[in-house]
Design a binder for these strands. Structure first.
Length: 409
DNA sequence: GTCAATTCACATGAAAGAGACCACGGTCTAGTG
DNA sequence: CTAGACCGTGGTCTCTTTCATGTGAATTGACGA
């Protein structure tokens, strides 16, 4: 890393300021946070509004479940409708928790703590017995006549991690509350996960169900158009750009967020290159960039042991084998880790790490049975070469490769 | 040739331990009146 | 006498190990035609 002179730095900033007005108008319109009018979801909005409407008269509402794949507007609709309700109804309080957020809610304690904090009381991040936090939460909830509507976004995440006991306790609590009321809106993109739940929870949780179908390409295009007017300057999008983004996102389960990301990234790239037009080709490169960025980020934030496993996998892939299995990875890992002075993990653990790498899309692992020759994961690296190079650089930074990109013994 | 039993190489689950971090309540210490 | 420093206890969190059980189809071996 060289020393950057102040003048250079200044150049970057001023250049950025000039180019900022080149393409974008208000880029925020391409992000999820910015909430414009919601289109193509009238039916769902009405349905949800009808089920939570009784809250206006202080009545308890049915616990509701919302299903739909990513980027179909579940969160947007839920937040919009509930906040409108809160304006109309006295004593209604909306709590929104995204269960996907690590550090916020991947244990029972943390979920409860987060809820309590949302209600306005501090809870230490650890140290207290869980039932004490329960008590605190319910005391707060019952401290005045109020109707708390709890939105648990990506609820399947937390159920998979810590089981459905939490929900059971939360739902059952209503019977003990004197003044407060608690209703639940669960949002999930996994339709099947309901089957794994305790029947009692299942029946009381999904008194009402809403389905959000994926957007089709035409709908996605409408959504994009409604935002590009504000987001981009006039005439910077070549014809067909929006349609292309919509089409690509439609292939991926009608994900509106992805469509917006495509446009934004395409715009950013064109802008950085000093161009005044966003082309269809930009959308294609944007898609690649989105994918690789995700993987690179995943690899970068991987802990040491996991990197060691990844290094073993990359090494096996480099040695020319198309695919290999857990046992192969483990033996190579052992050598690599021993060389680095790392503590050796058991194969049980390595197996889990391989699985995690697969889930993050860094590698490709599939459980197959080879009959007499056992049952194992078939592991592959299916990333394109430039991305593999990036990964190798990260591995090198962590001393799993030497500076020439070779695997050290 | 057919069919069930066998067998491999792990996958997958459950429980529990190690070590870090933290809150809380009690005790000790030093500074103050 | 009191505020703050300093324990000890008991709690959670993450990562990991240990022990146990599950699994899908290629292979094997018994069987009957």
């Amino acid at each position: 890393m060289g020393i950057m002179r102040q003048a250079d730095l200044k150049n970057i900033f001023t250049h950025y300021r000039e180019s900022k007005h080149l393409l974008f108008n208000q880029k925020e319109f391409l992000t999820e946070k910015h909430q414009p009018s919601i289109i193509h979801r009238d039916h769902q909005i009405q349905q949800l509004a009808r089920t939570i409407a009784p809250a206006v008269n202080g009545e308890k509402i049915s616990n509701t479940f919302i299903f739909g794949t990513v980027g179909t507007g579940k969160t947007l609709v839920a937040r919009h409708v509930t906040s409108e309700l809160a304006k109309e109804a006295q004593g209604v309080r909306i709590l929104y928790v995204n269960c996907k957020m690590k550090r916020v809610s991947d244990t029972e304690y943390r979920l409860l703590a987060e809820l309590t904090r949302e209600l306005g009381e501090a809870v230490p991040p650890t140290g207290l017995p869980t039932d004490q936090v329960y008590a605190q939460f319910f005391r707060l909830l019952d401290s005045k006549p109020q109707h708390v509507i709890l939105i648990l976004d990506e609820i399947d995440n937390i159920i998979k991690r810590i089981g459905d006991d939490v929900l059971y306790s939360l739902l059952r609590a209503n019977q003990d509350l004197r003044q407060g009321k608690l209703s639940l809106i669960g949002i999930s993109n996994d339709v099947t996960f309901m089957d794994t739940m305790d029947p009692r929870v299942k029946s009381s949780l999904s008194e009402e169900e809403l389905i959000f179908p994926p957007y089709n390409a035409a709908q996605l295009q409408d959504i994009l158009l409604s935002r590009t007017k504000e987001a981009f300057q006039e005439g910077v999008l070549e014809s067909g750009v929006v349609a292309k983004a919509a089409a690509l996102a439609a292939q991926e389960h009608g994900d509106a967020r992805k469509a917006l990301d495509l446009l934004r990234v395409a715009g950013e790239m064109a802008e950085r290159q000093g161009r005044t037009k966003v082309t269809i080709a930009d959308i294609d490169t944007a898609e690649q960039k989105l994918d690789t960025d995700l993987v690179v980020e995943a690899v970068r934030t991987q802990p040491k042991q996991s990197l060691a496993v990844l290094a073993a996998i990359v090494r096996l892939a480099e040695s020319g084998q198309q695919h290999f299995q857990t046992g192969d990875v483990f033996t190579v890992y052992e050598k690599l880790a021993a060389g680095r002075g790392l503590k050796l993990l058991t194969q049980r653990r390595v197996s889990d790490l391989i699985n995690e790498l697969d889930m993050q899309g860094v590698i490709n692992a599939k459980v197959i049975s080879k009959g007499r020759y056992g049952r194992t994961r078939e592991i592959k690296v299916v990333l394109d070469p430039p991305l593999v190079e990036k990964i190798k650089r990260i591995l090198a930074d962590n001393y799993f490769l030497d500076s020439l990109g070779r695997f050290a013994e």
